[in-house]
């Protein structure tokens, strides 16, 4: 009945680490309660995604995040220059962007990365089409050159070969 999968164990481990950090005690009762609670939550929350959880993309993600943070800093400085400029030289546009990513997890990561980078916000997601609001031409540059998409495709090992 209760089938324990690798995904559940990994989720339990992650939740349990957060429990340990937040509770801050090493009393056996508390630790045991945390273990039980994190396992139950992991059990309730597994098996929803269409693509099974894999360890390798999760590890490659750790490589992707610093790059994303570098982009966040760069575009933040760009946005700061835009806002502080006396003439307010903004030209907001809606970009209709069709991605070649397949799996839902990759598209979610793409949308969240777009929103996190200042200057671009995901407005709507229909299957593979994203509606992105960009503050000016340069903010959407990462997107229109498909650089962001290629990075994420690399994380999930997907094909986005241009025809």
């Amino acid at each position: 009945m209760l089938k324990v999968t690798m995904e559940m164990l990994l989720k339990t481990a992650a939740l349990f680490i957060i429990w340990l950090i937040l509770s801050g005690t090493s009393h056996p009762f508390n630790v045991g309660l945390g273990l039980v609670a994190s396992f139950v939550v992991a059990w309730l929350n597994s098996g929803h995604a269409d693509s099974p959880f894999r360890l390798v993309p999760a590890l490659r993600m750790l490589w992707y995040l610093p790059w994303l943070f570098g982009r966040i800093v760069q575009s933040s400085l760009h946005l700061t220059a835009l806002i502080l400029h006396p003439a307010l030289p903004i030209a907001p546009t809606l970009i209709y962007y069709r991605t070649r990513l397949q799996s839902q997890a990759a598209i979610v990561l793409l949308g969240n990365s777009i929103t996190l980078t200042p200057g671009t916000i995901t407005g709507e997601v229909n299957e593979q089409e994203l509606v992105v609001h960009a503050l000016d031409e340069e903010s959407g540059h990462d997107l229109t050159t498909r650089r962001l998409e290629q990075k994420i495709a690399h994380v999930f090992q997907e094909q986005t070969s241009s025809e």
């Binding site: 806002i83 903004i90 907001p92 200042p118």
Partner: peptide
């Protein structure tokens, strides 16, 4: 304060949150 509409202001807010 300066930006003209909801969408552009949301960009400013994302600056607050992210950096």
């Amino acid at each position: 304060l300066r930006l003209p509409d909801v969408f552009t202001r949301c960009h400013a807010l994302s600056l607050t949150d992210s950096l």
